[in-house]
Design a protein around this nucleic acid. Sequence first.
DNA 1: TGGGGTCCT
DNA 2: AGGACCC
Length: 504
Amino acid sequence: RARGVRKLQRLKSAFEACPELVIRNGSDLKHYRAASEGIFHFLKRFTPCVERLGLDEFFLDVTEKVAEFLGKPVTLSSIECYAEADGFATHLYKGRKLTLVETQTGVKSHVPARTSTVDQCNCGCHRRLQIGSCLAKKIRTDLFKELGYTASAGISVTKMAAKLSGEVHKPNQQTTMLPAYVPDFLAALRVRKIPGCGYSSARKLQAEGVEYVSQLRALSQKKLISLLGELIGSRLYLLCRGEDNSIVKPRGKEKTMSEEDSFLGSDNVVDVELRISQLLKGLLERTDARFERHGDLPSLLRLTVRDRVAAKKKGEQKNGYFGGRSSKQTAIPMGVFHPGDPKRDEKLISALMQLFFKLVPRNLCFHLTLLNVAVARFQPFGGASGNQTGIDSFFHTAANTSSRNNEKPLISSKRDRLESHNFFSVKMKVAKAEVASHPSLPRNKSEATHTNNYEPTKKRNRNKDRVAEGPAGSPGIIVTTDDAKVARPSSAVTAEDIDDLFNL
DNA sequence: TGGGGTCCT
DNA sequence: AGGACCC
């Protein structure tokens, strides 16, 4: 980062910025999954209400935890926290200079500069946020002590505000945002920053001359709904005003599991079958582990492909969106996924190849650049006796899908409404586990250097060729060998390091 | 430009 | 089955 290497950067320009850069193969996610799970369980010690977003981001609803401290005499040290900025642990957001904004379409949107600071609120939210910020500090300190990860956090009264606050001061810091500051903070953001307003919505809004959140407020709810649909439209109408009624929602077990691989091209069935069976193998390791833990098995199998031609067409339509995938899925009798079935691989590969030929008719040429094998619809599976593995159960799956939605959020949505600050919640986001920053990691240089066998090539789309294999299963952490200028350990992180961190 | 996920249409 | 969103 210090050298100008950025996330999502093209490898080409990353190498221009930092020629000694070493790229490690990070496509095997199992280490990250293990790390993520460790953090998840760690966080659940503080509150059961933890929502995971991706592998490295978490929301915590600490409303109840904070309430426990409210009744007590206000010695913040009672939760071992460290009052720093005005009694808030670390950064307290104090607003920023807002300027007159002129958009591409020439529409001007004035964002009023704040003249008076709003530093009091009689609902008690400041006190609660103060405690929440100390709790966050405590959590981050312990996280580093116990698991070795640094994290950034945002503390505020809604999920969205907490999430966005967390981005204000980034590596290894935290920021608390009082409710009064939220609307102005939002106003100056590009609409794309609003969680839920993605690439597609932002484009539609841009077509209306809307680039900033402040401009979004000028649109009526009806207009927004007609533009973006009922759900997103009405949500965005509120979000742009800082009103967010979404709740922190622990998601429970995964609903789908998949493995995928992308490659330069595959145009023959033998190769496709090989790739499919390798993906399946990895997937079955995961379904087996889950079966041991939870006793459930999938009953749906899906194959997804990306064809180069189709992908290119889609890409042109969407101007940059990396789509062009198509998929077929089929119900699978429950018993087939059972680890004890000796013909399991055979059956599943056969099923997958049938799906493949539905996607790519036998008489047609193809040029695939991606394959994905997914399973879903997990259902409890009793064991050896009393279950159907035969034809009967083929007709069973449709009737069985009613057991969804049985996980209730721990905090009801009524409680969480933002009508006043009385029903109050503190949300916290802990983000970006920075594995490479752990001081206990080895600092030997030789490993990183010996994998640095990159030879520049003029071919495009050959990025995979640039990826050093590294030790088997090593996580894909990008490090540089220049530890004089970059304050990071110069060696790569190995699987053993991760194991050590987690005492595996 | 990866390899995942969730939810909605 | 696909699209949009999230990391």
